[in-house]
Each structure stands twice: as structure tokens, then as C-alpha cells.
């Protein structure tokens, strides 16, 4: 396998992509394009923060990177760099930019500010997750390459997309896709499970129409090659 030139992390409601600072620009962007195309479901519509380290990136290179992302439906929302050249390039392209390490965490966009997310740091090794302590309203999308926990509702029109599991301590009435990179063991749990669409890996189900008589916490998982939803009491 090729050496990894890019690292991808979930941050707030978007993704942070760190690009190798030494490798040839062309090989880095080629690999990035290939990675995105492999898992287009996961990336689709995400806000992207690009971390470029000390590499000076001229405007034409940055603009081709921006176009590469936009062709794939991604928004380049922030460029992190230690190089003045790169930051000037970003400013010329009207892409927000910050010096690496400013304010510690990757600077969220204005809306993301309010999302109040905190990365979980487990003492034991495990997959990390993202906690959202609020209701996700229509139009809001969360991407994570770990697990997602939502303390609140996921309203119709909102989307949660995670490489791992999705736990909703509230009503799940929007769109949820767990195991988006292909993890068939991923689960989705909710106190009130009535998603507009529920996906695990490559499987899809929708909720039966009409109101349910009894609402109990439920868990969705794949069994015998299809998604089943069971009460969990």
C-alpha cells in the first residue's frame, strides 16, 4: 500500500484533512481525490478544513485543490497553515484561514461555534466519538469518522453520518447513516426510532408510516444481511 499522505479526522460538523507537508503536491492531491471518491457517501456535503502545515502553497495550487473538493460536493471552509504564502493564497481565494495551533482546536465556522462539541478522550483505547448536546434541526448535517452521540432530537431534514455507531438520546426523525465506510457491525440506537431513512453500511430502510402506539428505545443493526430494529428495554 502507498504511504499515507493524508490524515482525516471528524471535527464539529465537518472534517479536518491534514495533508503531508513534504510529499509532492500532485501525489498528495491525487491521493486525496482517490480517498474521497472511494467513500463519496461519507464525504458528501461535508465542510472541509485543510491543514497544510509549513508547506507554502501558491494560489493556483490551492485553487485547484478547492476546485477538486467542490467538484465532489465538498466545501473548503477553512485552511490551516503556518506559511504566509499559503494564507495569502487562501485569502485571495476568499477562503477563511488561520495559523496552525491558533486557539488550539481547529477553528469552527460561526455556526459550528454553537454546536458545543467536545472530542471524547477515553482512557482506555477505543474509537472516539462526538457528543452533541442539543437538538439537530432541519438542514443540519453531522459527519464523523468515529461514533456520534446526540443528547437531543434529530429532527426531520437533519442528517447524521458516521463511520461508527449513532446513539440518539431523544427522537430520531431525520436521516441516519452508521458504518458509512462499510462497517456492518455498526448500530443505531434511539429512544424514539422513527427515522426518515436509516442506513447501516450499504443497507437502507425507512420507517413504516403512521403513528406508533408504544414508543420504546430501539436498536437497529444488521442481521442476516438486512437491517432489523428491536426494542431494547
Amino acid at each position: 500500500m502507498q504511504e499515507e499522505l493524508i490524515a482525516i479526522k471528524g471535527v464539529n460538523d465537518g472534517l479536518l484533512i491534514a495533508l503531508s507537508t513534504t510529499e509532492k503536491w500532485q501525489s498528495v492531491t491525487d491521493q486525496l481525490a482517490a480517498r474521497i471518491d472511494e467513500q463519496s457517501d461519507f464525504y458528501n456535503g461535508a465542510n472541509i478544513t485543510i491543514e497544510l502545515g509549513a508547506r507554502p502553497v501558491p494560489k493556483y495550487e490551492l485553487s485547484s485543490l478547492k476546485a477538486l473538493l467542490e467538484r465532489r460536493g465538498l466545501k473548503l471552509s477553512l485552511v490551516l497553515s503556518e506559511s504566509d504564502t499559503t494564507r495569502n493564497s487562501a485569502a485571495a481565494l476568499k477562503v477563511p484561514t488561520k495559523k496552525n495551533g491558533e486557539s488550539g482546536a481547529p477553528p469552527p465556522s460561526k455556526q459550528a461555534d454553537v454546536q458545543e462539541t467536545a472530542p471524547v478522550n477515553p482512557e482506555e483505547t477505543g474509537t472516539y466519538g462526538t457528543m452533541f448536546r442539543r437538538t439537530l434541526r432541519s438542514g443540519r448535517t453531522i459527519h464523523s469518522d468515529g461514533h456520534v452521540v446526540i443528547y437531543g432530537d434529530v429532527n426531520p431534514g437533519a442528517k447524521v453520518i458516521a463511520a461508527g455507531d449513532i446513539v440518539v438520546w431523544g427522537k430520531l426523525r431525520g436521516y441516519a447513516h452508521a458504518g458509512v465506510i462499510g462497517d456492518e457491525s455498526a448500530i443505531v440506537c434511539a429512544l424514539d426510532m422513527s427515522p426518515s431513512q436509516l442506513r447501516i453500511a450499504s443497507h437502507v430502510v425507512t420507517s413504516p408510516p403512521g403513528k406508533r402506539k408504544r414508543v420504546v428505545p430501539e436498536v437497529a443493526r444488521i442481521r442476516d444481511n438486512q437491517i432489523i430494529v428491536e426494542a431494547r428495554e
Binding site: V114, R134, R140, N155, P156
Partner: peptide, 9 residues
């Protein structure tokens, strides 16, 4: 719901 999200933000 959508604008409530924007108002909160």
C-alpha cells in the same frame, strides 16, 4: 425548524 436552527446559531 430550519430557521429555528439559524436563530439559535
Amino acid at each position: 425548524d430550519r430557521i429555528t436552527g439559524l436563530i439559535e446559531a
